[in-house]
Structure formats: C-alpha cells, structure tokens
Computed example of a mutant assay.
Amino acid sequence: MNNAVAEPEGSRLQKAVETIVMTPAAAAKVVDGYRVTFEDKNERKPESLEDKRRIAAKIIGRYSKMSAAAGAATAAPSVIPGVGTAVAILGGGATDVAVALKLQVDMCMCLVEVFETELSTEDKKHLAFTIALAGSAEQMASKGGKAAVQKIAQKLVYQYLTGPALVTIKQLFKRVSITFTQKAMAKAIPAGVGVAFSSSTNYVLTRVVGRVAVAVLAKDVK
C-alpha cells in the first residue's frame, strides 16, 4: 500500500492525462470542421496567418467554455470524455486537474493542427503537451497580470522545447502537479465556493493557455 501512495503525483497525473487526451488525428478532424465552416462562410480556404488566427479564436472559445463546464469536474462524465478513466487512475484526488489539463492539451493539439500541419504525429503531441503544461503552470504559479504571464509562459515554452521531449513533459507534469496541489490546499474552503472558483479559473486559465499557444505557433516572438 505504501508503495502505491509513494508514487509521484506528477507521474500519476501524467499517466491519467496521457490516457484521456485526444489524438492528433482526432484533432485534425475537429480542425477540418472549422476549416469547412470558414470556407462556406468566406468562399475561400483559410490560408493566411490571419485566417488561421480566426479559426484559432473559435477553438479557444470552445475549449474555454468546456473547461468552465468542467469546473464541477467529475460530476459530468458524459460531458467530458475520459473523466471515469481519470478517476480510476487517480482515485479521485486530482481528477479535476487531470480533466482541466486534458481540455487544455486537446485545445493545443487542435491549435498545433491549425498552424503546424506538416509536423509528425509525435512532434504535434510534444508541442501540444509542452505549450499546455508550460502555459498552465506559469499562469497558476504567477501573481502577475495576464499580459505579463503570457510573455513569461511564452519564454518558458521556448525554453522547454529545446530539451528532450520525454524529460521535458515529465518535468512539466511534476511542476504542474505541485503548483495545482498548493493552489488547491490554499482554497480548500466551502465546496460551493470551490466549484464556482474552479469554473471561472478554468475558463480564464484555458484562454490564457490558448493565447500563449497562438503566440508561439504564429511565431509572435517578442
């Protein structure tokens, strides 16, 4: 029993998230739907950087709303696929975190597909995980404003992208797990308040991660 408990929280969280996130192929199908809608409305293909930004904004809006709905996390497994699997792996403890990260990685997987269609499947996954985790960790750890957090998170993403993929992702999961655990302990007050706070936090956090992703993928280096 002690060995099971002693398993690093970051490793368990990583296992849960990697089990329930969408595949690059699934992300490609989602993005294809947005491209078709864009073509129908504008009578042309979304080829310019500005066109891609417009599609990205729709994707960020969608996942931010889904993330807000997941604020009451585990109560809605039919709404957010993978909740049951996350509970089984994590025992319910960090399920909210796993579901929030799943949606952010899913969003980043779609955003990578919008901007970087030529990358290999593995490179798309690495990029999506790195952007989502680095952006999320920085936002949760920071006490600064959104603009400052975005810039710091962008630099963090570039920094992590230069390292070995598997080591990078493992390190990020560890950092995210520690940061979210500290935040959860700090706000462990009434349940109703926690749910409301979690919902709004998830929404804002997902939008910030989305903006960081677009800045990185559109190569807005500042």
Rank of each mutant, 00 (worst) to 15 (best):
A98C: 09
G61T: 11
V157F: 01
I55N: 01
A69E: 08
M140F: 10
C110E: 02
E118L: 15
V79S: 13
D106S: 03
I80V: 10
M140S: 11
C110L: 03
L49G: 11
P164Q: 04
L103V: 08
P46H: 10
V99F: 07
V105K: 00
P81K: 12
A88Q: 10
G163N: 13
S48P: 10
A147S: 13
M109Q: 03
A72W: 04
M107D: 00
A88E: 10
K124L: 07
Y158N: 14
S67V: 02
A69G: 06
L166I: 13
S64V: 01
D106M: 02
Q154R: 05
L103G: 04
S136A: 14
K151F: 06
V157Y: 00
A70N: 05
K58N: 12
V114M: 05
A141C: 14
K102M: 15
Q159L: 14
L156F: 10
L127Y: 01
A56N: 07
M66A: 14
E47Y: 03
S48H: 11
K151N: 08
G93K: 11
G163C: 11
V87E: 05
R53W: 04
K151L: 10
V105C: 07
C108W: 04
A148S: 13
G61D: 15
G84Y: 05
I59P: 02
A57P: 13
Q154K: 09
E118G: 15
A98H: 00
G82A: 11
D96S: 14
G92E: 13
A57K: 15
E138Q: 13
K143D: 13
G144W: 06
I80A: 06
K151Q: 11
A72F: 05
S136H: 15
Y160P: 00
I60N: 05
A70E: 00
G92W: 15
T162S: 13
V99C: 12
G84I: 05
L101N: 00
K143V: 09
P81C: 12
T121G: 05
P46K: 03
I152A: 14
G84D: 06
K143G: 15
A128S: 09
M107H: 00
S67P: 03
G163D: 11
S48M: 08
D106K: 04
M66Q: 14
V149I: 13
L166K: 09
V87S: 05
T95S: 12
G93P: 01
A100Q: 06
M140C: 11
G144S: 08
G61H: 10
V99W: 01
S142I: 03
A72L: 07
S64M: 02
L90Y: 09
Y158C: 10
G93S: 12
M109L: 14
A148F: 12
C108P: 08
I89D: 02
F115R: 00
A98Y: 03
L119P: 10
T130W: 05
I131Y: 01
Q150R: 07
L119K: 09
T117S: 12
T85H: 12
T162W: 04
G135E: 03
L161E: 04
S136R: 09
V112P: 02
A72G: 12
L166M: 12
V99G: 12
K58M: 14
